[in-house]
Nucleic acid binder design. Sequence first.
DNA 1: TCTGGGGTCCTAGGACCC
DNA 2: TCTGGGGTCCTAGGACCC
Length: 415
Amino acid sequence: MRRIAHLDMDAFFASVELLRYPQLKGLPVVIGGSRRSVDQRLLTPPEGGTLADLPLSAFPVLRDYAGRGVATTATYAARQFGVGSAMGLMKAAKLCPQAILLPADFDRVKHYSRSFKAVITEIAPVMQDRGVDEVYIDFTDVPGGQREGGRVLARLIQRGIFDATGLTCSIGIAPNKLLAKMASEFDKPNGISVVYEDDLQTRIWPLAARKVNGIGPKADAKLERHGIRTIGDLAQRDRDWLIATFGKSTGAWMHEVAWGRDDRPVVTESEPVSMSRETTFDRDLHAVRDRAELGRIFTALCEKVAADLQRKGYRGKTIGIKLRYDDFRIATRDQTIPLPTDDAATIRRIAGQCLKRVPLEQRLRLLGVRVGTLVRADAAGSDGVLDGNSAFAPVPAARGAIKKVVDLPTTVPLF
DNA sequence: TCTGGGGTCCTAGGACCC
DNA sequence: TCTGGGGTCCTAGGACCC
């Protein structure tokens, strides 16, 4: 019998911080905001002590935060106040002003991410990455993977992760990824839930349609308009009606999902499609008035993407920019060059051309740079690859872009 | 007191080729 | 002179996820 597990680390970013600040255990802690917004001097070990000796008064609290950003994670103590991830910090401060606010430490998080995944693959090698704090695991052919529907193996993995890292996780085991993902939410934190095919009507159908991985706010609102609130409601509609209402692909998918069907395999390896860097400014910037600052940020983003590509050994052909205006509208532009690159100057030059094709009258909140259509650097070949000194200097306009270049919008000529 | 940063996948239209 | 499809690439936007 197919047994698939979904494992979710509990309040991962916050739990990783609690490991070095054990005095915060049981307190509301929110991770978020920018590193530069927190006075790091406060968070250095006191004379003759360690970080664990820092008094609570040394920690910044949400009440004092003034700036942009959202919560990445909140401890369960903070969630009791209604604070959740992706919530604006200003709103979180209203709900729980006394919560301790720490910036995310991505290097630490990545270290612990590697550690817990290493524990898993030692025990069950067929594991699919779903970001820093989540994985799918195929229990089917693991010795002992069928015992108690997978519960025995799940316990073994939980214990192994705790022994290696001091962190807890929640695991759901089911016949497929769809159900396993929902099951892992049943008993949090530090729980295990086992779901069988026969549990569909009793345990899955009562859930809100929004709980399905892939039904987001838009689809949920549309479902609601048709009187569909739960997965059970969805299952009652016939397939043809769903297809007529949501389109061939989405409608058919919704029908399968409502009946608990999902045959996607657990995929252990995949190649990246794109790499990007983006930043939200501390204040909205204007292309004219803040030109110098924007230029510096833009160059830095290009350099970071280039460094990411080089470090990971990829080059890309499609260079693009993204910006978010002060009213939150998003614009993207991209251009494909003949040969893949990982060179900062080339990326900066092409991205600069993209920037010239987008309206820049309105103030900007965010700027991003993206490189897509990636190939491995070792497969790209070293001769002829575009770089800053390349003889291929002028890049011909890509085919699909020609028409659009002609009717340029009126933009402030800047970059 | 609104709303991060890193991704994936899908759709849809136009260009271009056969 | 007018009229085809099929397939692929490119671009822009959007939904969604962690």
